[in-house]
């Protein structure tokens, strides 16, 4: 087995282990406390908060912030996703339109 294949194989196994571990943890440690009010409180509000964190961190990172763009190269596609999703509520449509819009902007304009 070449070094590269070995690296790829270990990479896949390490990634799979880390992913499964995060999914397993609450079941392994908190199985007995599933109906505790604190677990319900976290289970109710955390997912939404975490999605918002992901947007707040990854959206600005995908933008160019210097003059004269001011982040609009990512904010415009993001606005398109929001408007389309509130209007049609079709996840595929919103994502496809937003991503195409972003790709078009990044490929046509050079910063």
């Amino acid at each position: 087995m070449s070094n590269e294949t070995l690296y790829l194989l270990s990479f896949i196994l390490v990634t799979a282990a880390a992913t499964f571990l995060t999914r397993l943890m609450p079941f392994a440690f908190l199985g007995k406390h599933s109906s505790h009010p604190l677990a319900q409180h976290l289970g109710r509000y955390l997912p939404a908060g975490i999605m918002a964190v992901l947007v707040a961190i990854f959206l600005p990172r995908s933008a160019h912030w210097q003059v004269p763009v001011f982040g609009l190269d990512a904010l415009v596609p993001a606005a398109l996703v929001i408007v389309l999703h509130l209007w049609r509520r079709n996840a595929l449509l919103s994502m496809l339109a937003g991503t195409s819009c972003y790709m078009l902007i990044q490929q046509q304009l050079s910063f």
């Binding site: 992913t19 999914r23 609450p26 079941f27 908190l30 599933s34 319900q40």
Partner: peptide, 8 residues
């Protein structure tokens, strides 16, 4: 974030 999914 998956940790919190399991909770519910």
């Amino acid at each position: 974030r998956h940790v919190f999914y399991g909770l519910s």
